[in-house]
Simulated scan of single mutants.
Amino acid sequence: MDALIYTAMSGAERAMRGQQVHANNLANLDTNGFRANLELAQAASLPGYGYDDRHMSQIQANAVTDRQGALHQTGRELDIAISGNGYFAVQGPSGEAYTRAGAVTLDADGSMTVNGMQLLGEGGPITLPPHRKMEIGQDGTVSVLGAGADAQMQVIDKLKLVRAEASELTKNEAGLVVARNGQDLAADPTVQVKAGHLEGSNVSAVEEMVATMSLNRTFEVQMKLFKAADDMTSTGNKLITG
Rank of each mutant, 00 (worst) to 15 (best):
V178I: 12
A3R: 09
G200W: 06
N115F: 02
A81Q: 05
Q73V: 05
K160W: 03
L120S: 01
E77T: 14
A81M: 02
G102N: 04
A36M: 02
R14L: 12
A15V: 02
A174V: 09
V162D: 04
T190A: 15
D2A: 03
T235F: 01
Y49T: 15
A164W: 01
E135Y: 06
Q58P: 00
G11E: 10
I136L: 10
S111C: 00
Q68Y: 02
L120M: 13
D79N: 13
T218Q: 13
G146F: 11
D2G: 01
A164D: 01
V155Y: 00
L161W: 02
G116K: 12
D30T: 13
E96P: 03
R76G: 12
Q118I: 00
L29A: 10
M112D: 00
T113S: 14
L169I: 07
N32F: 10
M232G: 04
R17I: 12
L40W: 02
G11M: 04
E77R: 09
V155S: 15
T241V: 07
A186C: 00
Q19F: 09
P125G: 05
T105D: 15
G95L: 05
K227M: 09
K160D: 05
V64R: 05
M213E: 08
V177D: 02
K133P: 03
K160V: 00
V142H: 11
L176M: 13
Y6R: 10
G175D: 02
G11H: 07
T218I: 05
G92V: 09
G84E: 13
T65A: 13
A186I: 03
G196L: 12
K238G: 06
A12H: 08
S204Q: 12
G121D: 06
K133V: 00
G200T: 09
H55A: 13
P189E: 11
G48F: 08
K160I: 08
A164I: 06
T190V: 05
A103Y: 00
R17E: 14
Y87M: 06
V221Y: 11
E96I: 06
R217C: 01
M223E: 11
S167E: 14
